[in-house]
Design a protein around this nucleic acid. Sequence first.
DNA 1: AGAGCAGTTGCACATTCGTTCAGGAGGTGC
DNA 2: GCACCTCCTGAACGAATGTGCAACTGCTCT
Lengths: 336, 336
Amino acid sequence: MPQTSSEALKAASALKAAKMYYLQDLTMGAIATELRTSRSSVSRLLSFARESGLVDIRITSPFDRGSALEQDIHSRFGVTAHVVPMPESISDIDRLERVAMTAGRILGGFVDSNMIIGVAWGSTVGAISRHLVAKPVHNTVVVQLNGAGNTQTTGIDYASEILQRFSSAYSAQIQQFPVPAFFDDPRTKEGLWRERSTKRLLDIQARLDLAIFGLGSPFAEIPSQVYIGGYLDAEDYRSLSEDGAVGDVATVFYRPDGTSSDIALNSRASGPSLDRLRKVARRVCVVSGVQKLASLRGALAAGLITDLVLDESLASRVVEPDGRVSESAQSDRTVA
Amino acid sequence: MPQTSSEALKAASALKAAKMYYLQDLTMGAIATELRTSRSSVSRLLSFARESGLVDIRITSPFDRGSALEQDIHSRFGVTAHVVPMPESISDIDRLERVAMTAGRILGGFVDSNMIIGVAWGSTVGAISRHLVAKPVHNTVVVQLNGAGNTQTTGIDYASEILQRFSSAYSAQIQQFPVPAFFDDPRTKEGLWRERSTKRLLDIQARLDLAIFGLGSPFAEIPSQVYIGGYLDAEDYRSLSEDGAVGDVATVFYRPDGTSSDIALNSRASGPSLDRLRKVARRVCVVSGVQKLASLRGALAAGLITDLVLDESLASRVVEPDGRVSESAQSDRTVA
DNA sequence: AGAGCAGTTGCACATTCGTTCAGGAGGTGC
DNA sequence: GCACCTCCTGAACGAATGTGCAACTGCTCT
């Protein structure tokens, strides 16, 4: 690891370079001359300045309102939407990647000092974590919202990698949650929930200022990570289907109308109840791909979301007045 | 003039392009493909997005503190400084230009809806006006702080050009102040100040939320615009010298210690009294070049400034513990 | 002291970007 | 209806930018 003074020096040069590049419109060559270094170094300094949040680039929709779609979503569901523009034809992998990158870039706008940030585990959040832009804040805490353990692994490696990245972007303290995603026996969960060590973490979760999560979609054509990694078995699926679940946030399931009571699996889930989640002031949901449409509609009905980042196709679907959407809604729709 | 709908369309495309470029890291070529247009058009769209404030690029110093110099200035004078990095050897013209460009770029951060913005007339403010980045705000008013007339011209053309640019950047209403910079007879001023039309404008000035001004420096080697354009005659200079003035803000003069009472010329000045100016919540001063050092020290002593944009050389001079600086201080200094 | 290593630097090259220019679309005035 | 005029578009060129690579610097460990 390099010494602290050289880090500070780098930041100071990067700051200078950034001011000259973005505020004075000099070329990198000119900056190199003034800083007595090479063009390449200036290019790298500027990359560093962007990644480390020294340069803050944000897109502001005119008059605090966005595109027609974003306004539409706002008036229909009361959530602030950020539509990520994208061709219809793009692959779901790229779609997720681009939505996640966008989310990582704008997340800094929600984070501030002294915040407790809840992070759900999942492939979407994982992708986001790879694109976070640092922001210089103090005294933030990053809390894992739900367990990541399954029948094969404790999940700590992967989950903690995600938390690490959030932590280093916002110089935050990490609070892991080393429990399985779903318990086999609800009584085990109840017992563990009474443990002081667990209670401490649940207390922190209860004081969340910001929650970041993707959406699960158990009955979509392409089931998400949680459903292929040994978290749920056939019996669980049957149970979810019987209870009418269409989606989940951090392992907690809900129905198309937003209700979640009496969904059996929820008593074994490690994530926060929807009631608890709704108490969080800012709840940022990142979601991509039309196969999540039903799940998104449910989450909106449940009022789980305050800020939504989603791709263009999904956005235009969600505002279509399709009536209530169930599993079969996918075949009801008219135009692709 | 193009139709409104095509303007809106352009803004929408620009917004899309900006999201893809700055949030998803696509190249302009890729964006062109997705938007079914050419690379060049995308390049132009992005320029438009930057100029029109759709893209907001700002430089944030780590931990809300800036470079060593900025922190130093803050602790010494209690003002938030923005030091514009620059080589010592640069010409004064470039120096002014680069400070002004920087100021124009960061000014958007101070402007908000429903604000009344006071703008002083001067070569520095003129340069700033050429580099303003638009910001979508409502119901702002731009007020001319001091008259611009002199013995040769009413000054309205040039001054109104500046105001126009502010106006179009912040979609603001313009309030001109069609009076001479300095009156010949204080009684004329007093009379005019009692006129209802003038009172209306003075009332607006009294409710200022933000003031933007440069500094005059009557006895510097290179006197600024105000002193060569027929605003002041030899007698005026003698009077200023006798009264110990080192600088002015919007035609109102002050001494090295920040006092301004009994400076004869001030009774004939068209700008707001320093007491009035100090009531403005945010007072942004933009200044460049070491010849303004004494004037800057006086303005700082007078507490006229809350936010300061200045070049690096001037910044490092102003924190030097030179003791009090008077007119003779210019010859005291060691290095050019 | 010297080998080893992580991090940094500048060069060279490939890519990406901004701008000029000629052509075309759309709107206006006679 | 036709000429004019302004604004917009895309191709082409040169300038600006990002990155793989090899050399180098400063530090650590033995």
